[in-house]
Amino acid sequence: MVTLTVNGKTLETDAAPDTPLLWVLRDHLGLTGTKFGCGAALCGACTVHLDGQPVRSCQLALANVGAAKVTTIEGLSADRSHAVQKAWLELDVPQCGYCQSGQLMSAAALLAQNPAPSDADIDTAMAGNICRCGTYNRIRKAVHRAAEMLKAEGA
């Protein structure tokens, strides 16, 4: 049994230590919001936070999670109240939606360390997340909008 902290809860899993965190979350813990797209750190669909940092969970073996806190899309907020979720809703970003868990996690991590990102900052932070439906222009707007919301909340 391996113990890990996911979305503030301490959970146990009997998954083998070399199982990628992605499949531990999806198959063993029932958290299917985190998606599988490539299995090779190429698409970002599996992005989660590890102690607040965005990581590709398809590349992270369970054994290497250790005591780090894992946050998935299900734990980004309890009620879709995170600024990125509100901005994404306001601008109707998703099409098929399959990439959006990863997009939201990347965007939330960006805003946590850079509350007023420039277009270039957004380019860098979001380049690892493929959206096959082509929602990029709305994503860019929504990141800026979320930054505005955070500023207003902080003010």
């Binding site: 299917t32 599988f36 899309i73 299900e74 994404w88 809703l89 998703p94 939606g97 939201l104």
Partner: peptide
């Protein structure tokens, strides 16, 4: 009008083919 499927696509609750769970299901 705003899409009615957006909210579920923002919190991981939307169910795609890959997310199907059935009792006793194997992989």
């Amino acid at each position: 009008a705003k899409r009615i499927d957006t909210a579920a696509k923002l919190d991981g609750s939307a169910t795609y083919g890959i997310d199907v769970k059935l009792p006793g299901m194997l992989h």
